[in-house]
Amino acid sequence: MLNKTVEDMLMVNREHYVIPASMVATVQADNSLTHAFLVLTKVRYARIPVLDGDQFVGLISLPMVTETMLGLDSLKIEQLDDMCVRDVMDTEVTTVANPYALEDVMHMLVNDPFLPVVASTGEFTGIVTRREWMKSLNYICHDLSKDYDVTPKVTAHATGKVE
Rank of each mutant, 00 (worst) to 15 (best):
S120I: 07
D149C: 12
L109R: 00
R130P: 01
K146A: 08
K161W: 08
V27R: 05
A25F: 07
E163Q: 12
V57Y: 06
H142F: 05
E92I: 04
P49K: 08
V88F: 02
G160S: 09
H157M: 15
E92Y: 05
D82M: 14
N31H: 15
A21L: 06
V24F: 08
D82A: 15
R131W: 11
E78K: 14
V12F: 10
V18K: 12
Y100F: 15
L102H: 01
V43Y: 11
H142Q: 10
S22E: 11
M89S: 04
P116M: 06
V117I: 08
G122V: 05
N138V: 03
S120D: 12
M108H: 06
K153P: 02
N31C: 13
E92Q: 13
E92K: 11
H157I: 13
V27G: 07
T94A: 09
K42G: 11
N111S: 13
Y139L: 04
D54M: 12
L40D: 07
V150R: 01
V18E: 03
N111P: 02
A46I: 11
M23K: 14
S22C: 05
T94V: 14
L80P: 03
V117M: 05
C141E: 13
V24W: 07
H16P: 01
A158V: 15
R44A: 14
N98C: 09
L102W: 00
G160E: 10
L115K: 03
T129C: 04
L33E: 05
M108R: 08
F124Q: 06
A101F: 01
G126C: 04
N111C: 05
L137F: 14
A46Q: 11
P99D: 05
L102S: 03
V65K: 06
F124N: 06
V110C: 07
N98V: 07
C84V: 15
G71I: 03
N3T: 03
G122H: 02
D143M: 12
M83A: 09
T41R: 15
D149S: 14
Q28M: 11
D87W: 03
A158G: 12
V96G: 04
I140Q: 03
M23T: 11
N138H: 15
T68H: 02
E78H: 14
A101D: 10
Y45G: 07
E7V: 00
R131E: 15
